[in-house]
C-alpha cells in the first residue's frame, strides 16, 4: 500500500509532541483563522502517520485504520476553532478525537445497539449543580409488606415456607417434621412462591 518509501526524515517528525506543542498550537490557530492549508499539512504530516500506527494496532485492519486516520484528521480540520491551547496540548486534543472515533467505529463494527456513544462519555467538561426540592412521601416498609403477603398464604403453605425460608431447613427435614411426603413439601413450596409472585405483580 505504501509507495514512494524513502528514509528522508523531516525535522518535525523527530520532535517529541511536548517540544512541538507550541508550534502545533500555532498551526491549529492558523487553520482556525484562515483555513490555512499549509499549516494543516504540517499538522497532518506529523500526526497522520502516527495515528495510522495507533489505528492499525487498535483496528487490526489497514482499511479501517486509514478510515480512522481520515475521520480524525477531518475533525482536526473542521473543528480547529474548538481547540483551546489553555486546556491541553494539540497532541492530547487529537488523541481524544481519535479515541472517540475509534470507540464509535468499534461500536458500529460490533453492531452494538446500546445508546452509549463517545459524545456521552467524553464531553467538553461542564459543571454540575444539584437541584433538590422538598417532598414528603409515605409508604409501607419493605418487611411489613412482604410480611402481609406472607400472612395471606394458606396455613399449610405458610408452615412450609416458614420452615424453609426463615428457619433455613431443608425440604426433607420439613417433610419429616410435618410427617408428610417430600413431594407434598415441594408442591406446597412451589404453589406458595407462585402465589407470592402473583401478589407482588398485582401489587405493582
Amino acid at each position: 500500500m505504501l509507495v514512494g518509501i524513502t528514509l528522508e526524515n523531516k525535522q518535525i517528525n523527530s520532535m517529541k509532541p511536548i517540544e512541538c506543542a507550541d508550534e502545533m498550537s500555532g498551526y491549529l490557530r492558523l487553520v482556525a483563522q484562515d483555513r490555512c492549508k499549509r499549516s494543516f499539512s504540517k499538522i497532518f504530516n506529523y500526526f497522520a502517520p502516527r495515528l495510522r500506527s495507533y489505528a492499525l494496532k487498535q483496528m487490526g485492519n489497514d482499511a479501517l485504520a486509514m478510515e480512522m486516520v481520515q475521520d480524525t484528521m477531518s475533525n482536526v480540520w473542521q473543528k480547529s476553532h474548538l481547540f483551546n491551547s489553555e486546556k491541553g496540548s494539540p497532541s492530547t486534543w487529537i488523541f481524544t478525537i481519535a479515541r472517540n472515533i475509534r470507540f464509535d467505529m468499534l461500536r458500529k463494527q460490533r453492531n452494538r445497539k446500546e445508546d452509549v456513544c463517545s459524545d456521552d462519555l467524553w464531553p467538553i467538561l461542564c459543571e454540575q449543580t444539584a437541584d433538590v426540592n422538598e417532598v414528603s412521601l409515605d409508604h409501607q416498609v419493605t418487611m411489613d409488606e412482604i410480611g402481609l403477603l406472607f400472612e395471606s398464604l394458606p396455613e399449610k403453605q405458610k408452615l412450609v415456607i416458614e420452615a424453609i425460608y426463615i428457619d433455613g431447613k431443608s425440604q426433607q427435614e420439613v417433610a419429616d417434621e410435618l410427617d408428610i411426603p417430600l413431594g407434598t413439601v415441594k408442591s406446597r413450596t412451589r404453589l406458595a412462591l407462585q402465589r407470592l409472585k402473583e401478589m407482588v405483580q398485582d401489587d405493582d
Binding site: T6, F40, N45, A48, P49, R50, S53, T96
Partner: peptide, 22 residues
C-alpha cells in the same frame, strides 16, 4: 497522547494515499 505521538520509530514520508486524503 504523549506516549502515542512521541513514537520515535522512523516515520515514512507521506505517500499518494495520504496526500489524496489530505
Amino acid at each position: 497522547a504523549g506516549e502515542l505521538f512521541a513514537e520515535q520509530a522512523i516515520i515514512k514520508p507521506l505517500d499518494s494515499d495520504y496526500l489524496e486524503m489530505m
